[in-house]
């Protein structure tokens, strides 16, 4: 079909442009020049060495891992409660409550960050890694709820009813039947919220009270030409890491859909 071919070519070009910056990133990370400009001058791994030797960066890495792991755990736990409640039970006010949980998805991040900042200042809470986590859980939760809702939706209700009829309690049914079936969704949610948290910049910058994290480190380094090549090396590793986590998350999501016998409708959102 001629029409299909034209559209296909367009889509492939669209994808190439979409990936353009991510493809250019490693080119310059391995390029033996202090300025980031074409033509490339030679292959080197020294920027990676310089990056790994940076003590500030190692501190930022540890901080980022603390923040991202806490965020992923909290957001996924809260997401399980919200998604389970919304999918399994009917209760008044569901629309408003679930809608409010999803609001950070459509609010500019600067508004979320500054509103939280004002609250923390007013309450006299000191800014720290903990306050970054508070903000990150808020913006990651909608994604957790979206992923987990589809995981709970593809669950066959009759399996639970069978377990209850056979004498299991509500909690043991949840633990023995429901949890194993939605486990792929839980893992996918954990990985996605981890990725969101480790990449997030605005909340990390303004609610962190000066504690260095990776995204802030990258942002600062890009503003000074001399620190750009090592940060390209760091960027290459971060992007590669994100893509790896996402591929694993997608694998679990699909396995979850297949496990529950559902039809794959595609995508996280």
């Amino acid at each position: 079909m001629k029409q299909g071919l034209g559209l296909r070519t367009y889509t492939v070009i669209y994808l190439l442009v979409l990936y353009g910056p991510i493809i250019i990133l490693p080119l310059f990370a391995f390029n033996d020049a202090t300025t980031v400009a074409f033509p490339l001058s030679g292959f080197t791994t020294k920027w990676f060495g310089q990056m790994l030797a940076d003590a500030n960066l190692r501190k930022a890495l540890v901080n980022s891992l603390i923040v991202s792991l806490s965020t992923a755990t909290l957001a996924t736990t809260l997401g399980i409660l919200a998604a389970r409640s919304a999918v399994r039970y009917s209760w008044p006010g569901k629309g408003i409550v679930m809608g409010s949980i999803m609001v950070p998805l459509v609010l500019p991040e600067m508004i979320v960050a500054m509103a939280l900042l004002v609250l923390l200042l007013a309450a006299g809470i000191k800014l720290s890694l903990f306050t970054i986590i508070l903000g990150h859980v808020l913006i990651a939760m909608p994604f957790a709820v979206a992923i987990l809702s589809s995981a709970f939706q593809s669950l066959d209700k009759s399996l639970e009813e069978a377990a209850l009829d056979l004498g299991e309690t509500g909690w043991s049914t949840f633990r023995l039947i429901v949890l194993p079936l939605v486990m792929p969704g839980i893992l996918a949610s954990f990985l996605i919220t981890f990725t969101i948290s480790i990449d997030e910049f605005i909340i990390a910058n303004f609610l962190g009270g000066g504690e260095p994290v990776l995204s802030v480190f990258v942002f600062t380094a890009f503003r000074f030409p001399s620190t750009v090549p090592p940060v390209l090396a760091l960027g290459t590793m971060l992007v590669a890491f994100s893509i790896l986590l996402l591929t694993i998350a997608e694998y679990f999501r699909r396995r979850g859909v297949a496990k529950a016998g559902g039809k794959d409708t595609g995508g996280f959102l």
Binding site: L15, P21, I22, I24, I192, G235, L238, G266
Partner: peptide, 26 residues
Amino acid sequence: KSLWLFLITIPFWTSYVIRVALWRTI
């Protein structure tokens, strides 16, 4: 379909700051 959607969404999930900063060099 889900593979295509996955390919389209991957860049969105990588660091926003890095992608924006790369446009400076592009």
